[in-house]
Structure formats: structure tokens, C-alpha cells
Computed example of a mutant assay.
Amino acid sequence: MDVMVQEAAQAGDDTVVLRPTMIYGYGGSEQLPMMLRASLRDGVSRYLGRGLNRYGNVYLDDLADAYLLALEHAPAGSVYNLATDECDFRRIAEAIAKLFGFGGAVSATEEEFAQALGPLPAAGLGSNSRVDSTRARTELGWAPQGPPLLDELVHGSYRRIWGPKGITVTPGQSTA
């Protein structure tokens, strides 16, 4: 897809590729709600193996700022990776466990992780997703200001939206 966008730029179209990492904020994203739902459903927050795999992340408002800056300043055909920080998955799982009041996160085997999240999401979340956003910062003047991922999970919008509301979750209990 990136190549098609760059080829379009060579043909005269004003195109830019933006590659955000794990997007978070306002209680949503693609990956985090999947992990949150699995944790609520099972009464446990999991990470794969030792949980040392690292994932870049970007706050939603900072991503929006990058899009605006790219519209205003990016040369056609440019490619930008977007991450404000990165975090290992064990710390993300621990923050989810803290959010839900679990005793802590637990290590899972590949099979357990895939069973909890599904094979494809588990493969993606069990790997590293590290990017360098220096180019976006220097060429576009991108200066992310959003809260760090773990703070947002434990104290921010995820606490307001996903946090305890007088519901007690027991492992194996359905939350539907």
C-alpha cells in the first residue's frame, strides 16, 4: 500500500504515508479494547512469555496533529512513522490489571495468549512494533504532548470508560 501511495505521488498526486503505532486515548483504539475485553471476560490480564516485547504508541490527539502537519508541510510521497513512546507488553498488561483491580498480570504461553485474543491479534501483540519518528518530528515539527500510555490506562480515559463501576469480575464469569 505504501508503494502505491508513493507511486501516486510520482504521478503527480499529493500523497503522504503516515504509519501510526498503537493508537490510544479516549478509552479506545484497536488493540487496547481487545485486551481490555479479554481481561474483563477472563478476570486476568495477560502478556506473552516474559512480556519484554516492545510496542510503540501514539496518543490520538498527537496523531491528529501529525495528520494536520502532514497536510500543511509534507512533500508528496513522504513517509512518516508516528510514535510518541514505546512500552513493553508486560507493563501494559500490568496497567490493565491495575485498572481492573486484579492482583497483577500473568505470563501466558503462545497457545494461551492466542486463545484469549485470537491467533492473528496474539501474533501481532506478541511481537515487537518499534518505529523511529524522528523524521516526523524534524521535517513536520511534530511535537507530541499527550499523556503517556500507562498514565492514560490507569488514571485517564480508560479508567473513566472501562474502570470499575461497582461490578465484580470473577475469572470465567461472562461480562456480556
Rank of each mutant, 00 (worst) to 15 (best):
D2N: 14
V3L: 15
V3A: 13
V3Q: 14
M4D: 13
V5Q: 10
V5S: 15
V5H: 08
E7W: 11
D14G: 00
D14R: 13
T15Q: 07
V17E: 09
L18I: 10
L18S: 00
R19P: 07
P20Y: 06
T21K: 02
T21S: 15
T21Y: 04
M22P: 05
M22T: 12
Y24I: 09
Y26G: 09
S29Y: 07
E30M: 05
E30H: 14
E30F: 13
Q31N: 13
L32T: 04
L32K: 03
P33R: 12
L36E: 05
L36A: 02
A38P: 07
L40P: 00
S45T: 08
Y47D: 02
L48F: 12
L52D: 08
N53Y: 01
Y55H: 15
G56V: 11
G56E: 13
N57V: 00
Y59W: 06
A64Y: 04
D65H: 08
A66H: 06
A66K: 07
Y67F: 14
L68H: 04
L69W: 12
L69V: 13
L69R: 06
A70W: 11
L71H: 00
S78P: 08
L82I: 15
L82A: 12
L82Q: 12
A83K: 11
E86Q: 10
C87S: 06
C87D: 09
D88N: 11
F89N: 15
R90P: 01
R90Y: 09
R91A: 15
I92G: 08
A93R: 01
A93E: 08
A93W: 07
A93D: 03
A95F: 01
A95P: 00
I96G: 02
I96P: 01
K98L: 13
L99G: 03
G101C: 04
G101N: 01
F102E: 04
A105K: 01
T109F: 08
E110Y: 00
E111G: 05
A116S: 15
G118D: 06
G118V: 01
G118M: 11
L120H: 04
P121F: 00
L125H: 02
N128P: 08
S129K: 11
R135F: 05
E139L: 14
G141V: 02
G141S: 10
W142T: 03
A143Q: 14
A143G: 04
Q145L: 09
G146Y: 06
G146V: 07
P147E: 15
P147G: 10
P147S: 11
L149V: 09
L149W: 02
L149T: 05
D151Y: 12
D151L: 14
E152G: 02
V154C: 12
V154F: 13
V154I: 14
G156V: 08
G156M: 04
G156T: 09
Y158V: 05
R159G: 00
K165L: 05
K165V: 11
G166A: 07
I167P: 05
T168R: 03
V169T: 15
T170C: 09
T170A: 10
T170W: 02
G172P: 01
G172R: 08
Q173M: 14
T175E: 13
A176M: 03
A176E: 13
